Amino acid sequence: MPRDKLLVPLLEIAQGTALNEDDLVRMVGDEISRLSAGPRVHGYIQVIAIKCVSDKVRQSASHNRANGNRHAGEV
């Protein structure tokens, strides 16, 4: 079970890729750091970060499927 239940949809999106939970947690952490640099309202940054990473993983997975590379490396 994921450490954070907010990661469940992200883990589902990442199925079929080489990304594991630790990779996704690191990516979300990086995204949180990036998003935290400017906004004054921080309450939703984790949710926004997970959405951003989900979009990146989904786009990468779609690109990999289109190129016939189901288990490509990190985004």
Results as ranks from 00 to 15, higher is better:
1 M>R: 13
1 M>V: 04
2 P>W: 02
3 R>W: 11
3 R>S: 10
4 D>H: 10
4 D>G: 02
5 K>R: 12
5 K>Y: 14
5 K>G: 03
5 K>L: 06
7 L>K: 04
8 V>H: 07
9 P>A: 07
9 P>N: 09
9 P>C: 05
10 L>A: 05
10 L>T: 02
10 L>S: 05
12 E>K: 12
13 I>Q: 01
14 A>C: 03
14 A>P: 00
14 A>D: 00
15 Q>N: 11
15 Q>Y: 14
15 Q>G: 05
15 Q>H: 14
16 G>L: 02
18 A>H: 06
18 A>P: 00
18 A>D: 06
19 L>Q: 04
20 N>V: 01
21 E>S: 00
24 L>N: 09
25 V>S: 07
26 R>K: 12
26 R>H: 11
26 R>C: 05
27 M>F: 13
27 M>I: 02
27 M>L: 14
27 M>G: 04
27 M>T: 04
28 V>A: 01
29 G>Q: 12
29 G>R: 10
29 G>N: 15
29 G>P: 01
30 D>G: 13
30 D>Y: 08
30 D>C: 05
31 E>C: 09
32 I>M: 12
32 I>Y: 07
32 I>S: 03
32 I>F: 08
33 S>E: 15
33 S>R: 15
35 L>Q: 12
35 L>Y: 10
35 L>D: 06
36 S>R: 07
36 S>F: 03
36 S>G: 04
36 S>W: 03
37 A>N: 12
37 A>C: 07
38 G>C: 09
39 P>T: 13
39 P>C: 11
39 P>S: 15
40 R>C: 04
40 R>N: 10
40 R>W: 12
40 R>D: 09
41 V>M: 10
41 V>F: 13
41 V>N: 14
42 H>I: 07
42 H>T: 09
42 H>S: 07
43 G>E: 13
43 G>T: 08
43 G>P: 00
43 G>L: 09
44 Y>D: 08
45 I>Q: 01
46 Q>T: 08
46 Q>W: 13
46 Q>V: 05
46 Q>A: 13
46 Q>D: 14
47 V>H: 15
48 I>Y: 05
48 I>S: 05
48 I>T: 07
49 A>W: 04
49 A>R: 03
50 I>M: 02
50 I>Q: 01
50 I>Y: 02
50 I>F: 00
51 K>T: 04
52 C>S: 14
53 V>S: 01
54 S>F: 01
54 S>M: 03
54 S>G: 07
54 S>C: 02
55 D>H: 09
56 K>A: 13
56 K>M: 11
57 V>I: 03
58 R>W: 14
58 R>M: 08
59 Q>L: 08
59 Q>I: 01
60 S>W: 15
60 S>Q: 13
60 S>K: 12
61 A>V: 04
62 S>A: 13
64 N>C: 04
64 N>D: 11
65 R>G: 03
65 R>Y: 14
65 R>K: 11
65 R>Q: 11
66 A>W: 13
66 A>G: 08
66 A>I: 02
66 A>L: 09
68 G>T: 06
68 G>Q: 12
69 N>K: 13
69 N>Q: 14
70 R>V: 05
70 R>N: 12
70 R>L: 11
71 H>S: 07
71 H>Y: 15
72 A>P: 00
72 A>F: 01
73 G>N: 12
73 G>D: 12
73 G>T: 05
73 G>H: 12
74 E>W: 09
75 V>H: 14
75 V>S: 11
75 V>C: 09
